[in-house]
Design a protein around this nucleic acid. Structure first.
Lengths: 210, 210
DNA sequence: TAGATTGTTAATCGATTAACAATC
DNA sequence: TAGATTGTTAATCGATTAACAATC
């Protein structure tokens, strides 16, 4: 692999993954960068560049074998492992994620759930009982947890992130509307839902802007 | 305003907005691009460039007036208007969004809710009754709807998007894990939740990559 | 006024696209 | 083999950063 892969490339990998999954469903065996370009909307050149960051997965005159490439991309993305998760904040959004059984099937089991709301503590979601957030650090120290999910309020989020880091999570998946401050070694993936609504509205208000 | 604002800039506007909101809460009256840079993590140069796409909001020797700039950015983002929305798909995620009363307060009322699941049809969420998705086009033709929210399955999403376009929505806020095909005049803001988890895992698996 | 800080031009950096020799 | 298509280098484009004159 090249020394440093840019975020632009990394963020396209899940997109390739989605389209390849679709191609598998359609029973397509192999595909050229040109045909993939037509579907996915990136240039064929970019597709070849992106993939070649990780190795020569194609074959001249033939293109890319769909299943092989799908497997490669899964492996590059680290999706051939399992990642245990905990979720803190079981309001509407937290419960939606906690109920989303697809994550379990994808190899992302949620093994701990935490909230400060006494009405939620004790509630069982997907067989896991919601605990008091006070127990978070203890739980992290006695269980191997790879990813911490934050679906708390903006106000609570930073302190939960601190606890997750202290507890040794390897990454944080953040849904609270702020930018968390964590040590550089801990990657954070943030889903700024409201930001995307704001950008969408910008494009509605400024239609000339394309 | 400059002729064409790049998406990179547009996507930073909601970030400026969030930080300015924070500054207002803290009672900060004015701020230099340098100090804002320290907080937000963009370079001071980039901040000045970004803002100057839309006008000279600062004052030499003083910086930017926080409240004025906040108001300007809201106006640029089009957040000084109201946008009516409908939501299609009231599973876990759809219900989480529909229950999120903050959107109502922000000027984004959800005025129609639709699903195909008979168990959900008739359910009331925030005083709105979930209707059969069959009624979607009719509803759109008899109500002014600015934004369509799609929280259906991947399989249903494209056909719902088509109906929304036919019904005259001005933009689509998509949470289904696919790239919708719509006429170029209709902006789509997609929240690819699972893609962000995949990218996060990439960074966990490749820690040298920064 | 002197100091601070913007607005804006120029320089740099990085990402995307084009081109084509290599090769299946 | 001939045709197709990759892998990869070079060219272009656009975004970010640096620099500094303008100005409050």
């Amino acid at each position: 692999m090249k020394n440093k892969i840019s975020d632009a490339v990394v963020n396209r990998l899940p997109v390739y993954r989605r389209y390849l999954e679709e191609l598998i469903d359609e029973g397509v065996e192999h595909i050229s960068s040109n045909e993939l370009s037509r579907r996915i909307g990136f240039t064929a050149s970019q597709i070849r560049q992106d993939l070649n960051n990780f190795g020569g997965f194609g074959q001249q005159g033939y293109g890319y074998n769909v299943e092989d490439l799908y497997r490669e991309i899964n492996s590059i993305l680290g999706l051939d492992h399992e990642y245990s998760m905990v979720i803190v904040g079981l309001g509407n959004l937290g419960q939606a994620i906690a109920n989303h059984t697809r994550y379990y099937k994808m190899g992302f089991p949620i093994i701990g759930m935490f909230d400060i709301n006494p009405k939620l503590i004790g509630l069982k979601i997907n067989d896991i009982e919601v605990q008091d957030s006070e127990n978070l650090v203890d739980f992290l120290k006695t269980h191997k947890v790879d990813i911490g999910i934050i679906t708390t309020t903006k106000e609570a989020a930073q302190s939960i992130a601190d606890k997750m880091v202290e507890g040794g999570v390897k990454g944080i998946w953040n849904f609270a509307p702020l930018d968390l401050k964590v040590p550089k070694r801990i990657p954070v993936g943030s889903v700024h839902v409201t930001d995307t609504l704001n950008s969408l509205v910008y494009h509605i208000v400024h239609p000339d802007q394309g």
